[in-house]
Amino acid sequence: MAAVAPSRLAALTKLRCEIFQTAYNPTSVRTGAKYLRARLRGPSMIHYYPDTLTVAEFNRMPGGFKIQDWAEYQRLADVEEKKRRGKGAPRKAKTAADSRRMSRKR
């Protein structure tokens, strides 16, 4: 029985890859195809962890229950403290004449 020529086996492999829509890789170079074909993990992880409930979302829920958001309370106190020391955000200009940029233009 005669052995089949390597060129014929390579042609057969190439044709098989075209028919079954697989990657033709005669030199066995790493392509990452295994990872690209794998199922994505992100959607499963999103469904695994429960939704987190923030204080603001809880206060917006129907039922009339309200709890104090201490982080927001502290933030507002810090903003007020900065305003008292003159370090707060500048006032918004109501007209073009009030704007600092308009006075600087040449």
Rank of each mutant, 00 (worst) to 15 (best):
A3K: 11
A3D: 13
A3G: 06
V4Q: 07
A5E: 12
S7M: 14
S7V: 15
R8L: 05
R8K: 08
A10E: 03
A10M: 14
A11W: 04
T13P: 02
L15E: 08
R16G: 10
E18H: 08
I19Q: 03
I19T: 15
I19C: 08
F20Y: 03
Q21D: 15
A23P: 08
Y24L: 06
Y24A: 14
Y24D: 14
N25V: 01
N25W: 05
N25K: 02
P26K: 00
V29I: 14
T31D: 13
T31Q: 09
G32I: 05
A33D: 14
Y35H: 14
Y35F: 13
Y35A: 15
L36Y: 05
R37G: 10
R39C: 09
L40K: 12
R41G: 01
G42S: 04
S44C: 04
S44T: 08
Y49W: 03
P50E: 00
D51M: 10
T52H: 07
L53P: 00
T54W: 00
T54Q: 01
V55S: 03
A56R: 08
E57I: 10
R60M: 10
R60Y: 02
M61V: 11
P62A: 07
G64F: 03
G64S: 11
F65C: 12
F65N: 15
F65R: 15
I67L: 06
I67N: 03
Q68N: 12
A71G: 10
E72F: 08
E72R: 11
E72G: 12
E72Y: 02
R75I: 05
R75T: 10
A77I: 10
D78S: 13
D78C: 06
D78P: 03
E80W: 12
E81R: 13
E81T: 09
K82P: 05
R84K: 11
R85E: 08
G86F: 01
G86H: 00
A89C: 11
P90Y: 02
P90F: 02
P90G: 03
R91H: 04
A93D: 05
A93N: 04
K94V: 13
T95H: 01
T95Q: 01
A96G: 02
A97E: 07
A97C: 09
R100C: 04
R101Q: 12
S103H: 04
R104P: 03
R104N: 09
K105P: 02
K105V: 13
K105A: 15
R106G: 11
R106T: 13
R106H: 04
R106C: 06
